[in-house]
Amino acid sequence: MSPGPEVDPGRSRVPSITSRGHRASLLTADGVRIEAAYTPRSGAVTAGRTGAADDLALVVAHGFTGSLDRPALRRAAAAFHGRAAVVTFSFRGHGRSGGRSTVGDREVEDLAAAVRWARALGHRRVATLGFSMGGSVVLRHAALHRPAHGGRTAAHTDAVVSVSAPARWYYRGTASMRRLHWAVTRPTGRLVSRVGLHTRIHPEDWDPVPLSPVAAVPLIAPVPLLLVHGDRDPYFPLDHPRMLHAAADPATCDLWLEPGFGHAENAAAPDLLDRIGGWIAERQAGAGSGTG
């Protein structure tokens, strides 16, 4: 991979965007280097609209053990290129990003850096979409990076989609989650994760325990929120999305319980991704520069 220039996410400008996009190294607020990629909306380059302020950008956050170069994330991101410019990135400890994974805690800073980069490229409207661990991160990010006193911050989001996310921490009710906890909490599990899954995990426990997804959800409104979950999810059963939905503002939150859908980006079918893209476009249609 050609990593491209290192970028200050708060001030970056990319002088030349091609139809193949651009790679960059972003520096998070806590000093971690994050690999990121930008792809313009289909047709935007040839139409001379690259980086136009009225274009929508979608920042896509992968699940645990993923990265921006994993085929499942690339396929999911490609499904949105006709509706928006797309930013993908690798969370800390994943792919070619620096640092070590904190499994949803400090990853909020990674997402914030990617959102800032999207805005620095000229996009006034930025939506966030996350899968599994990324789904919990987009919820917490939206709660922690809220506009203050009616203003805007470079890291705020204008719409949130959380797919296959947990509602609460330390869940061990499925075999898949028991295996994941072994991988995260045991030295042998972290070794297997590093060597076999190319995921470097921080060895220390959370201190303090971060804001949980279900505690974050009530803080997101009035930003539009979509929760998507499958009835065949092997990690988190349906009480997780239902708990999140019950905690959210009913005026701004939609819940889709998808028959036959498994877990996260690996299981997301093209028709589901298309409907998600339509939901984002509908919520942002007519939002204009006043929302960003």
Rank of each mutant, 00 (worst) to 15 (best):
A247W: 03
G173Q: 04
A216R: 01
H181R: 14
P222E: 13
D239N: 15
A167V: 11
D233F: 12
V223A: 13
D254N: 09
G230D: 01
S164F: 02
A167T: 10
S176C: 13
A247Q: 07
L257Y: 08
C253T: 15
A221H: 03
G189T: 08
R178V: 13
D254C: 08
L225G: 01
A159Y: 02
T188M: 14
Y235D: 01
G196H: 12
L257E: 15
L257W: 09
P259C: 04
H198L: 12
L238T: 08
P208Q: 12
A264H: 01
I220L: 14
R232T: 14
P250W: 06
G196P: 09
A251K: 08
D249S: 12
P213A: 12
A216L: 05
L244H: 00
L255D: 07
A221E: 03
E258S: 02
H181D: 11
R168H: 12
A221G: 10
T188S: 14
A246W: 03
I220C: 11
P224V: 03
V161Q: 00
G260K: 10
P203I: 06
A221S: 13
I201Q: 00
P237K: 02
A165G: 09
R178G: 10
H245G: 07
S193T: 10
V195S: 06
R168D: 09
T185P: 00
A215C: 13
E204G: 14
R242H: 14
P213C: 12
A264Y: 00
W256R: 11
P203D: 09
D205W: 07
L227Y: 03
Y170R: 12
D239H: 15
P208N: 13
I220V: 15
T199H: 03
R186A: 14
R200L: 10
V192E: 07
L226G: 01
S162K: 02
A167F: 06
A247C: 11
P237I: 04
W256H: 10
L255N: 08
A215K: 12
H229W: 09
V209G: 10
V217E: 00
D205M: 06
H198I: 02
L238I: 02
D231A: 11
R178C: 11
I201G: 00
V160F: 04
L219N: 08
P224M: 05
E204D: 15
G196R: 14
P218R: 09
E265K: 04
D207G: 00
G189H: 08
P250A: 08
T199S: 14
L197M: 15
T199D: 02
S212N: 07
V228M: 05
Y171E: 05
A216K: 01
W206A: 04
T199E: 05
V184I: 15
P187T: 07
H181Q: 11
H263K: 09
W182T: 07
H198F: 11
P218E: 11
R179Q: 08
S176Y: 13
A183L: 15
W256A: 05
P203G: 08
